[in-house]
Design a binder for these strands. Structure first.
Length: 456
RNA sequence: GUGAUUGUAGCUCAGUUGGUUAGAGCGCCAGAUUGUGGAUCUGGAGGUCGUGGGUUCGAGCCCCAUCUUUCACCCCA
């Protein structure tokens, strides 16, 4: 039997775990300082909680779990009267936001709103794996539900800055607003085509303005509308400049003007909190980007996306995204609760830090001292010493077999254990243990007190 | 879902137009050194060439299918 794991999944060895925990710990500690509480939800949800929440494409990418019971046999027997519910009624979670919405509705009576929660768990998508794309990956989400205030958006942007400053990774934080996109569609006379328009706009920095116009035409957007769109998408200048221009362009669109007003408020706050972070400032500029669309269709207000902007990295896809969703809990029966949140893609961040050698040195030793094993009697004595050291908070281990010294020293070498202690019959008699510094090769005879002193 | 790409020892990879018994480096094991590692030297083990079919006198190499790897599109963290 040749061992294997499913496509798009990975094992994480001890070295990988150090990297992953470094990212998780950084993000988690920042979430905490912003007052977020942690929750977890099950890996699987009832399919009815997931289907229809991520658009047509998302439904295709859901991992569905085969029902237990006699379903498989029925399928093998070729019974054709099976309904979907007979075959599958559960699925692996696709993101953390929808399960969170479900959680909020189910636990609404226990929650003090506004509720700030964070969640770090894996999600699964039946996508074709490729660069920066896995079938199992971790998201680190922070959401605030039960408050319309734009101070929440400002907090989330601050979190993003803190995280990437701490990780020493240059990024660009793009912010837009769904209402502005709606307004643009409206004023160019293509209100119904907002989805096609935003999907095309989103590709601007990837395929360029010509190809975007082509795609718009293919999708059936009128030539006139495309012409009227040009000055809008070519808009440039400072964030304040863009907002002024948008005010003029969108003056006949009620939602559009609402979006501009929201962005004015948000950027007003951000300008005061992060006066140095505007326009093109390294390492984390904040930019109003009207070509930013984001795929998830539940966003209604601000949308946020973070891209790497670091000379050391070639990575282009987004590493963090989020936005405001006015009525996510509505579909689960709790209308009128607004939420806003962000999600960090831990695996992509890890890939990038790998690429740029951005991880710190993880020199943390796992075992401080290894006791050699010279046979049963000596080993039992050594194990007593090992346990006394453990009681002192020093990580110690006994080599389990009375193998050759060459083998035991080789093991200490491979594990990068800094000290070895040898207790043979002579040492047992005298109470003077042989202590060896594995790096310098120095060897000395020490009693218990001295041993403890050196190792501490 | 569409289009490419990859698979040979534990790992990284050679392997000529199809031609005897498929190689190297690293790692592993043993010995030189029976209580001393990271260096060196000597020797050794380890392969149904992803899997299943096919073409051929003969296939690691050619053909088909399938799985897997990586990448682009779609979409996304």
């Amino acid at each position: 039997m040749k061992p294997s794991i499913p496509k798009g999944t990975r094992d994480f060895g001890p070295a990988d775990m150090l990297k992953r925990n470094y990212i998780f710990d950084t993000i988690r500690s920042i979430f905490r300082t912003y007052g977020f509480d942690q929750i977890e939800t099950p890996a699987m949800e009832n399919l009815s909680m997931l289907e229809g929440k991520y658009g047509e494409e998302g439904d295709k990418l859901l991992f569905r779990i085969l029902n237990s019971g006699p379903v498989l046999e029925k399928i093998r027997e070729g019974k054709n009267d099976l309904k979907q519910g007979d075959v599958t009624e559960k699925g692996l979670r696709y993101d953390l936001t929808v399960p969170f919405a479900r959680y909020v509705v189910m636990h609404q009576n226990e929650i003090a709103f506004p509720f700030r929660r964070y969640q770090i768990q894996p999600v699964w998508r039946a996508d074709r794996p490729q660069k920066g794309r896995y079938r199992e990956f971790f998201q680190c989400d922070a959401d605030i539900v039960g408050s319309d205030s734009l101070f929440n958006e400002a907090d989330l942007v601050s979190i993003i800055r803190d995280v990437f400053l701490r990780l020493r990774l240059g990024v660009s934080i793009h912010i837009n607003n769904r209402k502005i996109l709606a307004g643009i569609s409206e004023v160019i006379g293509e209100r119904e085509r907002i989805v096609d328009i935003t999907v095309a706009l989103d590709k601007m920095d990837k395929i360029g303005i010509e190809k975007v116009n082509e795609e718009l035409a293919v999708k059936g957007v009128s030539e006139n509308a495309i012409i009227r769109l040009q000055p809008i998408i070519r808009m440039h200048g400072s964030n304040a400049d863009k907002l002024e221009q948008l005010k003029e362009v969108l003056k006949n669109s009620t939602p559009g003007m609402k979006g501009v007003e929201e962005m004015e408020t948000l950027f007003g706050i951000l300008d005061q909190i992060h006066p140095e972070a505007n326009e093109h400032s390294y390492p984390a500029n904040i930019e109003l980007d009207i070509t930013l669309a984001r795929g998830l269709n539940y966003y209604t207000g601000a949308i946020i996306e973070v891209k790497v902007a670091d000379q050391r990295s070639q990575f282009t896809s987004s590493i963090c995204g989020g936005g405001r969703y006015d009525d996510l809990t509505g579909i689960f029966g709790l209308p009128g609760v607004s939420g806003v949140g962000i999600s960090f893609g831990a695996d992509r961040i890890s890939d990038i830090l790998d690429e740029i050698n951005g991880f710190p040195d993880f020199t943390t030793e796992s075992t401080r001292v290894l006791f050699a094993n010279f046979g049963n009697e000596e080993a039992v004595f050594a194990l007593k010493m090992v346990n006394r050291l453990r009681d002192e908070g020093i990580s110690a281990e006994l080599f389990p077999d009375a193998a050759k010294m060459k083998k035991q020293f080789g093991y200490a070498d491979g594990r990068k254990i800094p000290y070895m202690v040898m207790i043979g019959s002579e040492e047992m008699k005298t109470g003077q243990f042989t202590l060896k510094n594995m790096e310098s090769g120095e060897q000395s005879h020490v009693a218990w007190d001295e041993l403890l002193h050196v190792l501490k």
